[in-house]
């Protein structure tokens, strides 16, 4: 775990620097922060809150992505043992990837990767 000590130090330094920047700007900034500024969309004030249920038209892509993302969890440790396990490791992994890619091709054919 000691290898993570420098990481913690770097995190601390980064946070201290960010805090220092905020502190500096508190001194150097012209005027205190303003609040309740109207958001910008071209000059007219908003009539509705922008927070809304956003129409995520690329939702099917997220599903395909999640499948692959899970696969990555297997692939990281796999890299360490390829030559130790031998050809069977390569065959199994790329068969698995091949199946996933077939899924991608299916999703593509169904139009999941285009949303305009």
């Amino acid at each position: 775990m000691s290898q993570f000590v420098p990481v913690l130090i770097a995190l601390g330094v980064a946070l201290v620097l960010v805090a220092a920047l905020y502190a500096l700007s508190a001194v150097t900034a012209t005027g205190r922060p303003v609040s309740e500024v109207a958001p910008f969309a071209g000059g007219l004030p908003p009539t509705h809150h922008a927070f809304s249920r956003f129409h995520v038209r690329w939702y099917p892509v997220t599903m395909v992505f999640l499948a692959f993302d899970m696969e990555m969890i297997f692939m990281y440790p796999w890299t360490l043992v390829v030559s130790r396990v031998g050809p069977s490791a390569v065959i199994e992994m790329f068969l698995f990837l091949g199946i996933l890619l077939a899924g991608v091709v299916y999703a593509w054919r169904e139009g999941a990767l285009r949303w305009t």
Binding site: T30, R32, V37, P46
Partner: peptide
Amino acid sequence: LVGQRRRTLA
């Protein structure tokens, strides 16, 4: 750094 910070409505 000189610029003012701001927060938008809600």
